[in-house]
Amino acid sequence: MLSLLVGALVLSAIYALVGFAWVLLRRTNGILNLATGAQLALGAFIFNQYATSWGLPWPVVVLGTLATVVALGAVTHWLIFRKLAGQPEFALVVATLGLASALKGLSSLTWGTEARVMREPVEGRVVELLDGVSTTLYGIFGLVAALVVFAAAHAFFRYSTTGIRMRAAAENSVLASQGGIAVDWVYVLGWAIALTAAAIAGIMYAYQTTLSFHGVDALGLRGIAPALVGGLTSIKGVIPGALIIGLAETFGVKLFGGSAQDVAAWVVILVVLLIRPQGLFGEKQVERV
């Protein structure tokens, strides 16, 4: 039982990172990014290329992955979404769908469709927490990474000038531009942060299972569930959402077998949409008209 809870918590941490990527992009860039799953997988494959195929030293692998992902974020905005400014949201969503299948094609051409095992930075990946309760090093790392990302995001949006400008642009991009804010760079930053969180989640998941485009992609898509629980716009709301999905999926699989994995997340999505489409923890608008 405790073992299951630990497993659920570790899974929740990964979902929290995925949900963060969904919410950040929706809120800052105004895009419901259906390519989130594909980008999760892409991040993991890039990491694997540096780590396993090329066998680069670990610091180079980490920095190289980060740099590549950030550059991809910049390219994504500059070549695609900047050109779509002013289009209705459904056009942007369709563009992300196109992006997702382009990335999928690119990935299977470059890396094939076989599941892979990634080179590991350490030996002895299993850590015993208590008698009979264990997790992997990657599970622990995922938890720590999620905590760090959420704490850093909180501080960034609250205290840093850049973070405040991102919130300003997210609320009203025209007013932001009239106020001298470089809105295009805000969007680039939005993509960069979202893709980084997505890559971390993809890599952690691949270490705990195996690296396959399909597996990581599916995780990324299920990650809209924790984002929806938070109303798609609340970063804080992702945390309870991730816990709900993590628990539902872990216990669902335990009770009903592996096929419950996808079902659990989508059941939560349906329930949220039916009961509270604005999200269980959607942020209240402070306004006075």
Binding site: R167, E171, N172, V174, L175, A176, Q178
Partner: peptide
Amino acid sequence: VPEENKVFRTL
């Protein structure tokens, strides 16, 4: 200073 939405309301 535009006619509508002069400030960021959520900030």
